[in-house]
Design a protein around this nucleic acid. Structure first.
Ligand SMILES: [Mn+2]
Ligand SMILES: [Mn+2]
Ligand SMILES: [Zn+2]
Ligand SMILES: [Zn+2]
Lengths: 142, 142
DNA sequence: CTCCTTATTGAAAACGGTTTTCATTTAACC
DNA sequence: GGTTAAATGAAAACCGTTTTCAATAAGGAG
């Protein structure tokens, strides 16, 4: 279970394992789509009603520091968090149901270097994200 | 001058040309980097001190509707506006001085289609941005 | 040029998401 | 079980953005 790994990692960093943290970690770790702090709050509250929104913010902050989640930018907003992929990967997001999947873009580094050279830049980071309609949503639309 | 084109376009859409609008348009049209509403406000105020921040927001909104500016997402924030390129282009941004230049990425469409196919998605939009250090900033660092 | 109409403006208030403060709780260690 | 400091949630503060509204001025008509 991914959430167990995350909890173990938090513990390893010296953080305490509380009910509130377990609830937040559980919610985010198993979500197929990026969640806003409020999303996380509402979903987690079902398993731990005493949860406070502040704790959601604080927990997401720690998970991001540990590179267990990443912030995802979308048209509708730039404050949603998603379980991070291992290694260097990029996102493909369904604009209908918001499901997110990772893919590798190994071949692109050279192209980006060329672009940089052409403009006298040293390129050392890139953001790439694809948007589309997933199979499930496609079926529903038709 | 780019700002004249923008003013003409605004007029064509039936909007009135005011001192406040001229100041905002002037600032954004000639900026080499994306500017936040507050940036635009502070810079424009020098040419038109009576300017209100609200008008900056309202003018940027209109410029975006007319596709004269585009919103730029960066690590430091997602609410900066930049003169939009004609046609489909992508951004290369200097993380030091924030200077932004556009480049074309024609070759990529096929690759993105393949990625989609592999994950049962129909890809119909992509977001690509490169970050690096521009020649000028490179010189200063060394 | 002068008059009218109404789009536009800036100040102030409202708003909403995020952060800070602080007294209370509780996880972890002995 | 007792101790201690990290963690919590409620409430207040904060801050970027939007709404409200009375005053202003752009631009068309005469
Ligand atoms: Mn890559
Ligand atoms: Mn492209
Ligand atoms: Zn979908
Ligand atoms: Zn630079």
């Amino acid at each position: 279970m991914k959430s167990d790994t995350w909890l173990k990692e938090l513990r390893k960093q010296g953080y305490r394992l509380t009910e509130a943290r377990r609830a937040v970690v559980e919610t985010v770790a198993q979500s197929p789509r990026a969640l806003s702090p409020t999303d996380v709050y509402n979903l987690s509250k079902e398993h731990y009603p005493a949860l406070g929104l502040v704790t959601v913010y604080r927990t997401l902050e720690k998970l991001e520091e540990l590179h267990l989640v990443q912030r995802v930018h979308q048209e509708e907003g730039c404050n949603a968090y998603l379980s991070e992929a291992e290694g260097h990967q990029h996102l493909l997001i369904c604009t209908e149901c918001k499901k997110a999947v990772y893919f590798e873009g190994d071949d692109l580094g050279d192209f980006f270097g060329e672009v940089g050279k052409a403009h006298n830049f040293v390129v050392n980071e890139h953001w790439l994200q694809l948007f589309g309609i997933c199979k499930d949503c496609k079926r529903i639309c038709d």
